[in-house]
Design a protein around this nucleic acid. Structure first.
Lengths: 336, 336
DNA sequence: GAGGGGTTTGGGAGCGCTCCCAAATGGTGG
DNA sequence: CCACCATTTGGGAGCGCTCCCAAACCCCTC
């Protein structure tokens, strides 16, 4: 504000100062061949002296690539993004993107207006690629990304479709392990609090539970449905207890609901893990803080982000990566 | 992938189809005056028929504005972003930005490399403005934003400096209210678990506590220092109890530490709120889930985001907004 | 019917970069 | 010493848009 609004120097000015042509300067900038060592040095000096920084937008226009990718959170309301899950995905992704010198745009694409903006962003080639998460069944965003010709990597699979490129977490396997763990602890009347059935995560974790039960020769208990929130977990656990009073273990499809279950069990006078063992899923902070600390299935959230980014960078570079399912790991604590 | 790689139509093509000049088409696009109604209609029809979308990058180059702003999280490690706080700021900000038709870039500017990239982004005019958060004392990022000529809005104030434009939360007032609430509950031996003193938030909340004590004619108890984490809260509470066994209330500078305090108190056999009342700060999920649910100071996180965005949009438009301190609100639950 | 005001209109010159291509340069072999 | 090939070099034409400006146009008024 104090100084004159001095313009940023342009490549022409660099070239002039170095006594070479703009083309030569451009070659040095992109360290392309066909520049004599002396000229190269001269240009480098000029760049340093003028404190030159290439104008990204101009470069983007000329090369037809933007140097940025978008992370799109579909969901039904922008507030879905408040889930700490996404923040950790971003931490993972941004490290990889930084390596590839790509910037990250964040689009909370809930609602018509933001979807229209996303559509424009894609059509106008505002980004070189997209990472897409929290897509629901028949989400209108699916049409948008189908029409675009920039590469799209999904995080998780939307229910009812198998995108060409995705990174997902082994929800089925994780849920199966969690249930098997309960069985291995000597429990046999294992119930489950499942997630909303219109989410792929909800479905997959429920399936893992059923698989484990059937494999063990037990009859799956009808699931009580939660909404991935703690209060939802309280309500579901209460209902489950009423329906199956003899329950000796519960697999909850995420930690929030497991924490709710803990609270409901305490309210009902059942000891954990004495009377009822509880396993959650996610291994968020709440699992460690819960009382008793929750045994849970840790999913590699940050790795999900970094792998998505890696895959996208590969696609942009013209490679043909293959989709990925990341393993989960059971973390045993005192709730079992 | 199935279709030919048909190029997006350009404005020239629109103009040609509408039988007008490129200039006229451009005017219609930006609905500028000096276009006859018929031509306007013709252009609009051509746009619709060709499914034309203006090329953002070209426009950016011509107008010298990018149509995007950056949210920069300074911090010392990228993982600071995993704090759910930022996610809610983003939810607030992105709604306002969407209204202003600005895109959001996210920069986790910890470490030299990412700071260099940020510097380039600013110098190369990759964004029209910046929202800046989690800046530490003497953070190198301060120099970067001082040198840039795009507007910068701070979220919170970095310790030791008063930025020209900021949105902050009334941490002092909130902490004072929290402490006064404890006093109003009939407590008098009120201790505090404070945050790291090199954060503005830590300092401000500690100050609010001291103000309330002094105003009430009481001697502030020397604070026990935590690090804003739950385990940190456990340790601090244990230390505090040892030092001040007669304590009957604690103000913790955030909910995580308050939850830790709860756990430590339970471990020490003190009833909450019977023996010791506890107040936290933030009103995150954990406050509601804690046992007993925490009385806490709610800060308007989403509003922080939206107000930052609003201020930035104003600055970009050439206005001269004034900085803002958002009020907090005490939420009474069962820990007091 | 010529002169004057205002409003359209379209050509052209950018914005700052990349990249193609033709010309210049330099080193080699016959 | 010249022809010939491989490099290096710089001019110029984009990329797709905005915006200035001069020319064209329209409608009055005198």
């Amino acid at each position: 504000m104090t100084e004159a609004p001095r313009r940023q120097p342009t490549l022409d000015e660099v070239a002039e100062r170095a006594g070479v042509s703009r083309s030569a300067a451009s070659r040095v900038l992109n360290n392309a061949p066909h520049v004599s060592p002396e000229k190269r040095r001269a240009v480098q000096r000029a760049i340093r002296e003028l404190d030159y920084v290439p104008h990204t937008t101009a470069r983007a226009l000329a090369t037809r690539q933007r140097g940025a990718v978008a992370l799109v959170i579909a969901g039904e309301a922008p507030s879905i993004f408040a889930d700490p899950f996404f923040a950790r995905v971003i931490v993972g992704a941004s490290a990889v993107l930084e390596e590839a010198d790509l910037h990250l745009m964040l689009c909370l694409a809930a609602g018509d207006r933001s979807r229209r903006r996303l559509a424009e962003l894609l059509r106008a080639r505002g980004v070189d690629g997209v990472m897409l998460m929290a897509v629901r069944e028949n989400d209108p965003v699916l049409r948008l990304v189908k029409e675009t010709d920039v590469p799209v990597v999904f995080g998780g699979r939307p229910p009812g479709s198998e995108p060409p490129w995705y990174v997902d977490v082994d929800n089925v396997g994780g849920a199966r392990h969690a249930t098997e763990h309960l069985l291995a602890c000597g429990r046999s009347r294992v119930g489950t609090i499942c997630g909303p059935p219109d989410t792929q995560v909800g479905r997959a974790r429920h399936r893992g539970y059923r698989e484990a039960m059937i494999l063990a020769g037990l009859r799956p208990v009808p699931a009580e449905r939660g909404d991935f929130t703690e209060p939802g977990g309280v309500a579901a656990m209460a209902a489950l207890l009423q329906r199956q009073p003899a329950l000796d273990a519960v697999f909850a499809a995420n930690d929030n609901m497991a924490a709710g279950a803990l609270r409901a069990l305490r309210g009902a006078g059942r000891a954990v893990p004495g009377d009822v063992a509880v396993v959650g899923f996610d291994d968020l902070d709440i699992a460690r803080i819960a009382d008793p600390p929750l045994t849970t299935v840790r999913q590699p959230i940050q790795a999900l982000g970094s792998e998505m980014a890696r895959m996208l960078v590969g696609l942009i570079a013209g490679e043909e990566p293959s989709s990925l399912i990341l393993p989960t790991r059971l973390v045993a604590r005192s709730s079992t």
